[in-house]
Design a protein around this nucleic acid. Structure first.
Lengths: 340, 340
DNA sequence: TTGTACGCGTTATCAG
DNA sequence: CTGATAACGCGTACAA
């Protein structure tokens, strides 16, 4: 409550100049050790902490990173990725005295505006680019804005930014092999919107693996990652003349909703229909039957992304991409051999 | 990319002094209208935007609000409240050029430290205080730190901060009356941790309403709001010599997990057991059977909280509490008359 | 090591 | 009234 001490207070108390204090506190050479000690002691006694504001102004940095999330709230509500991702990011930022600025862009406002605001207001030193889309326009935008970034997974176009990647494909392959191994031949997929890089990556891995087993998808429906979308897609699949005996969903939310739809239609899961999801969200383990799914580690993803972004922000050129351990299959009760 | 224009550039272009520019842009009296127009035009032509770093330094404000969330990531992951709440907050902040600084405090670090950091780093002008606990120590801490706040719901002790409240009780009462109306007499509850104000509020409303109907709870189990906790509590309830015919959970996550546990135990919901939740999370509608629950509006909550906090931050004294429309009952298929 | 300009708006003081 | 001038907030960086 008493106004915080400034660097001038420290200087006065140590009997030196402001400049020396700054040097001492930043551990820069050019000061006698005895002077450094004196200054550090004075700073300590006064409980001095640098003012972010003054520092920001003089070094032109925000000491903050930004995350723009574009979802309507209802959808975001049950997304299992971001909260854990954010926690991972925080675990890195908190040790560096940085803050995370979050921007939730709801429908109506464009996502680009979110980044633009962050850049114009100079609120952050860099941003995380998530949910990459094909030929993502945000990459060009960020280049234009001069805002450093790290991409979550690798974009398909050119990108000057490092990528932190977590390969979804091994998990997808494992799911398909698991289903094929159980004897399924009529397997369908509920994919995510094709505009997303990760959605098509999963989708392609699905089709390819099936092909490698000499099979073709019964159908590939497109969902929008929401529960409502999962229900719709599931109903369409179940209404097919020859419905699938197994459905692989691009995320758990659609899978859990699909599970509900199948049960509501009188089907027994897994006896009549096997269901697999993607994410291993909290509820996946606890619905009935437990959902077979694919588990990634969003917390680690957040840590790695934050560290990588900071290297860029710190001026490191040629920051290498970081590859995280791939997502892996978690087998539960929702998958079993197909009905005879 | 070309360096942004400063207030001095605008002044030069308009042929006036820096001070006048500042006055004109802040709509302060003391300038001829013609001068104001000239300045505004110059600013416009140059595309000038104030540097909020410089502004921060000179007016000692951060132009940002803070939210500290204390959950371990796994739990936070499926919390339906915060994402929508944050979206509501954003909808207000974005119109004022403010930012939201998010801090996720994971286990190990104390929540208090989160607020302390936010205050010491002067990162925000005020904070949202969520998940109030009885005799919440954070209130005293914030007073000590001199950090303005708004509480989400009303704390039970003294508080100098305005509260934005959303009464859970009418919804709780409605659930109990709904169950009693269906003919249930053996009703149990899975409550939240008693340390939380909202958990005990719901719990008390539950017990009181039951008492008003001349009934007593079969049992009140305490869950921790997680799916795993919901499963445990449900198992204990179902193992009772005379198990309940209806269970009311303090949130949807526990309810959905409880639903899974009941089904895994071979029970038919709602024929053998009625289940009701709280939140109306996205999946509530889509699990099978659809979950009877209580719906609040976290987006509006966020809007109201942001507006209220801003009034405090702006120096308004005696900002009144804001009362939001109460949570309301949503009846779905998971509740029905008890077995004969 | 010190002194001081600098980053950029805000605001109090003062002259016209 | 109108508008200019300068001090201020606080740390950094460079010339002296």
């Amino acid at each position: 409550m008493t106004k915080r001490p400034t660097i001038a207070d420290v200087a006065r108390r140590a009997g030196v100049s402001k400049g020396s204090v700054s040097f001492a506190l930043n551990g820069r050479p050019g000061l006698a050790q005895s002077t450094v000690d004196k200054i550090l002691a004075a700073a300590d006694e006064l409980g001095w902490r640098p003012s972010n504001r003054a520092r920001s102004l003089s070094v032109s940095k925000a000491f903050a990173l930004g995350l723009v999330i574009t979802r309507d709230p209802a959808v975001l509500s049950s997304d299992p990725f971001f909260p854990a991702f954010i926690a991972g990011v925080e675990s890195v930022l908190s040790t560096r005295g940085q803050a995370l600025v979050l921007q939730v862009v709801t429908a109506g406002e464009s996502e680009e505006d979110g980044y633009r605001r962050l850049a114009q207001d100079a609120r952050v030193d860099g941003v995380f680019l998530s949910d990459l889309r094909h030929d993502d326009p945000r990459i060009g935008l960020l280049v234009e804005l001069g805002l450093p970034a790290v991409t979550l997974n690798r974009p398909d176009g050119d990108s000057p930014f490092p990528a932190v990647t977590l390969d979804d494909r091994p998990g997808t392959v494992a799911v398909v092999e698991h289903l094929v191994g159980l004897g399924h031949t009529r397997i369908a997929q509920v994919a995510g919107p094709p505009a997303f890089v990760h959605a098509t990556a999963r989708s392609t891995a699905f089709t390819d693996t099936l092909a490698a087993a000499g099979l073709e998808p019964v159908a590939v429906e497109t969902g929008d990652f929401t529960a409502a979308g999962g229900i719709e897609a599931t109903r369409r699949l179940l209404a097919l003349p020859e419905p699938p005996t197994a459905i692989f969903y691009a995320n758990d939310r659609m899978a859990i909703a699909g599970l509900g739809a199948a049960q509501a239609a009188g089907l027994n899961v897994p006896d009549d229909l096997s269901i697999a999801g993607f994410d291993d969200s909290e509820l996946a383990e606890y619905v009935h039957p437990g959902l077979t799914t694919v588990r990634a580690d969003p917390f680690r993803f957040g840590e790695a992304a934050a560290r990588t972004l900071n290297r860029v922000v710190d001026g490191d050129t040629d920051v290498p991409d970081v590859e995280l351990p791939p997502a892996e299959l978690v087998v539960r009760r929702s998958t079993a051999a197909p009905p005879l």
